[in-house]
Design a protein around this nucleic acid. Sequence first.
RNA 1: CGGGGUAUAGCUCAGUCUGGUAGAGCACUGGUUUUGGGAACCAGGGGUCGCAUGUUCGAAUCCUGCUACCCCGACCA
Length: 449
Amino acid sequence: MRLSRYFLPVLKEVPKDAEIVSHRLMLRAGMIRQQASGLYAWLPLGYKVLRKIQNIIEEEQDRAGAIEMLMPTIQSADLWRESGRYDAYGKEMLRMKDRHDRDMLFGPTNEEVITDIFRASVRSYKQLPLNLYHVQWKFRDEIRPRFGTMRSREFLMKDAYSFDMNKEEARRSYYKMFVSYLRTYHRMGLTAIPMKAETGPIGGDLSHEFIVLADTGESGVFCHADMLEKTIPAFDVDYDGDLSPIVDDWTSLYAATEDMIDMEEFEREVPEDRRVAARGIEVGQVFYFGTKYSESMNATVTGPDGKEVAVHCGSYGIGLTRIVPALIEAFHDENGIIWPVSVAPFEAVILNLKSGQEACDSACDSLYEQLRNAGIDALYDDTGEGAGAKFSTADLIGIPYQLIIGPRGVKSGEAEIKHRASGERETIALDQVVTRLKELIEPERRDKI
RNA sequence: CGGGGUAUAGCUCAGUCUGGUAGAGCACUGGUUUUGGGAACCAGGGGUCGCAUGUUCGAAUCCUGCUACCCCGACCA
């Protein structure tokens, strides 16, 4: 993409209403624009990141056996009356009427809709297990939206729903999502720790929140330091096999949010020098809720014994529009964002330090063409800005590799590659740039880790 | 919803106390000179001062009402 033809409204000055670093940087890097309280437009650069995140989530959900679909944003109130949640949900649900005066709502979540779809089509235990998911916009009328897209009213969420014959089968479905989540965050470069979470009225041990540590996180969290060093299941993990050793390993060490913390237990189980007490951002939650909706909404299947049973369900959410700021909270410095390659809006940026000079232009044009052919997604700063401004913008928007092409280097047939994260630079012959860059970028795509 | 605050150019803000018809920096447009870490100079364009009412010869400024947004708290992917 040529920057001169792109839409990247970067801000030099810090917008006054942005308090936390991710919100400030998202605004300054031209990723989002607020339209109203808790409502954001995703500008091209931000949307590219969102799409990258979505792709990773979809790949990992698919690997774990979940099946993608898409449900509507607007739902009928009738389904919610059936589950009993229409009155229970309160003011957080955005309600509206259609032209026939029917009660409608903007979905804050999709248990009712998916259960309705399930019961209409699934009759036999032979069709189980089933896990259906979608990535769709949700609306929750938060009392106080804040921190940009970290807590917005409209947000993009991946929500998966599993259906099983009984609790033990449901546990297997839960484990699949648990493992899939570990991999999903890992591929984005995030260290997300599963922590015991509230299970609501159902009880049991089957709910975990996935937390990324960050000073600006909204929850206080407590865990064993070794949780930060654990090995992530590999891409070829056998989802049809027994996942309990992995889950047992990941749940054997103490980890809980402030809502669930039992200080005595924490201090008993974790040696003092291994105790981590920090702030964290919740980037996902997995949850088993049994027959809560299947009973109230009559979602049953016929078992092998010919008897009808209500299916056991779980739901599994990842907030995509929250992961973006979570990533920035984790990866930034005083100059701007530092994207991991796997989620970067562009993998490299060509900085033409002297646009308009023929030698520089042709070297950059040629390089840009080569990068495209090599399958590297590059931004090409071909604008007339000064060198300093180009460096600053490149640092701000956080593209992992900067290819610096100036009259000095072009004369001697050389370019400079700057690694945004480390600041390291290497000088390299112009005709070697693409080869070298591929070498650097490909392992960092993390698609087969 | 309770408490606190803000609203003036695309952005960050001054001007409001003490009423006299709107400014700065950055950004933008044209030109000249520049160009390896947010260039310089010259010349320009751009604002019904959040909305509505009232007071006044005259309101960004004073009164009243409203709206939007932000911060702290309770709630949440």
